[in-house]
Design a binder for these strands. Structure first.
Lengths: 341, 341
DNA sequence: AAAATTATTCAAAGCGCTTTGGAAACAACA
DNA sequence: TGTTGTTTCCAAAGCGCTTTGAATAATTTT
């Protein structure tokens, strides 16, 4: 059943039926009710393809798989994606995925998506400090939102968490507990969030008059192996230079740290203080660590849901200022932190 | 630049230009070359929306997030999805995602996708033995392919791995090494793959004249905690009834088993033999276990790539028999298995 | 009661592609 | 010469929706 048939049934024009169904004000409530009833009765569903052609809008949002894949990255991306898909389907939007493959560069993926005009907007995740994608998309005329922030001359819409504030709070807590040798195991420095976190970390220690030892700051993949090897290295330092506290960019890293400590007979929350950032995945994480982990935490699924709302809002009101939000991050104190002893 | 403008430029009809670009035979090679050159020159890209409307095909494949989410499940799904997206984009297809949310049942998600006619076919993953989706989709007239198999009266296309053969090989290896008390930690029994695996497992032991002890077979979530608790329980049995070998449905489960063994001072590959199924994720897995794990392995990313090919083939030749493939599974023997003793 | 508003409804023109049913041009055959 | 085939190309009719510009009906104003 299509629009023409339905309007013929009703003895109305396509215009009126279309407007009645789409909530335009210039159709009487009586007619609207009649149209709705008939549409329900016949199970009428407007053709997405026809609407796309007529409106020029695809009702579709695009995401692209991150170029470098790893376990945690995939988990985070999937959790984020799941949130996006959930909210998008509530808003009657589709989500389509792109991916670089083989010789095709990531840029080509974005170009392809834009050229084919298959999406109304794209959502960028894991932005680098110097990320080429905003400039590219703006040049191509494709609206976008960033999950995170980036260093960019041009304006852009974004949703980010307060990474700096989070790591400021974590480092400050440790400093207030008397720790002066605090190590930071950060994510890859090319990512904007990692820079933000390091800034917050440094600011807190400096505020407490603690000189930041560059040797205690490292960055790398946010996986168990990184935490293990880096912690091992630092724990081998002479006792008076060995860190008494660690701040980790992910729970995976914290697991590695814990293993390194265990190997030295050091107990988390007893001999060594540990804080990690916890991107809530499947509503579980830091609290099921042993001991329960003091953590800065934030739901990446919620971020996905919210960024889709912002994105759709942006598409509906193109002339409005670009949406931007920065979410505060909770520092939840659990059993992995204690005063320095 | 649209088709009309391009054909005006060329002094040809839209028909001819369209056919030239789409490789129809009734246009001379000379004209085709001219058209191609002009299209390239002007950067002409056909509008996906218009094509969709005209052909009734959306050029889109649909997948739905599994209803129950967990870490391994997400990782597997993402790996599979990544493969799908990769091949789909090579074939100029899009992949869109659906997801049940809140009150909306999984069935509603499929209905919605079909009603809106936004996808040409759907790919079903993690089929249950009694899965309602094939009947639903057939009734709705939506083509689909299953990654896995199911117990269904109606025919369906599928790509599956030989789960039965894999677990047959694993159990047979253990039997041949002299193990007679072999435990199986299977996935949820509602899933078809779990039933297949158990069948293979039993068949091998029976073939070797070993009575299968039902107490040694359990099933549950394919996560570390399951392996840990189940193995712990079995390792507490009196020595003459305690299993000497374990077959696990995932590496996660194997990790749990290893921890349970370690707690009892039992070494994998020494005191206890261990085999797990390894869905290759990120090209790593069983070989980085300690000790390297004897495993049945199969690439889930490859499966994603292939199922998209089959799906697209099915759409292109709707009257051809439904495609189906069963992939053999390699049993790779590493250090976690040894003769009983 | 006529004129001016306002509230409803409609006919028709796209959106940009595919595809049907010829037609024109040309060569090959009788 | 007339007929039959081939090749190559085209005009025009959709696909099913949105939206513009007008027309009609109902209401209010003068």
């Amino acid at each position: 059943m299509n629009l023409r048939e339905l309007s013929a049934q009703l003895g109305l024009s396509q215009t009126t039926v279309s407007r009645a169904l789409n909530g335009f004000p210039e159709v009487s409530e009586e007619t609207r009710a009649r149209v709705r009833a008939a549409a329900d009765l016949h199970g009428y569903r407007p053709s997405a393809a026809a609407r796309r052609l007529a409106t020029g809008q695809s009702g579709t949002l695009g995401l692209v798989f991150p170029g470098e894949r790893n376990m945690l990255g995939d988990l985070l991306f999937t959790e984020f994606l799941g949130g996006c898909v959930e909210r998008a389907s509530q808003l009657n939007y589709d989500v389509t995925l792109g991916m670089a493959h083989g010789s095709q560069s990531e840029e080509a993926v974005y170009r392809r998506a834009v050229r084919n005009a298959r999406v109304d907007a794209m959502i960028l995740s894991s932005p680098l400090i110097a990320d080429p994608r905003p400039a590219l998309l703006r040049q191509l005329g494709m609206p976008f939102m960033i999950h995170g922030r980036t260093q960019s001359a041009e304006p852009y819409g974004f949703l980010d968490i307060d990474n700096e504030g989070a790591f400021f709070a974590a480092a400050k807590l440790l400093a207030d507990l008397g720790h002066s040798r605090v190590a930071l195991f950060n994510g890859e420095t090319a990512f904007n969030f990692a820079a933000d976190r390091e800034r917050g970390f440094r600011r807190a220690l400096e505020m407490r008059g603690i000189a930041v030892d560059p040797g205690l700051i490292s960055s790398g993949a946010m996986i168990e192996a990184s935490g293990l090897s880096q912690a091992k290295r630092l724990l081998e330092l002479p006792k008076d230079r060995r860190p008494t506290a660690f701040v980790c960019s992910s729970i995976g890293v914290a697991i590695g740290v814990k293993r390194a400590c265990a190997a030295q007979g050091l107990g988390i929350g007893k001999d060594i203080a540990l804080i990690a950032h916890d991107d809530r995945i499947h509503d579980m994480g830091a609290e099921s660590f042993d001991p329960p982990l003091t953590a800065t935490q934030s739901s990446i699924g919620d971020a996905g849901r919210r960024i889709v709302e912002l994105c759709v809002g942006m598409l509906r009101e193109p002339q409005a200022p670009l949406p931007s939000e920065v979410w505060p991050v909770d520092l939840v104190v659990r059993g992995s932190t204690m005063p320095v002893g």
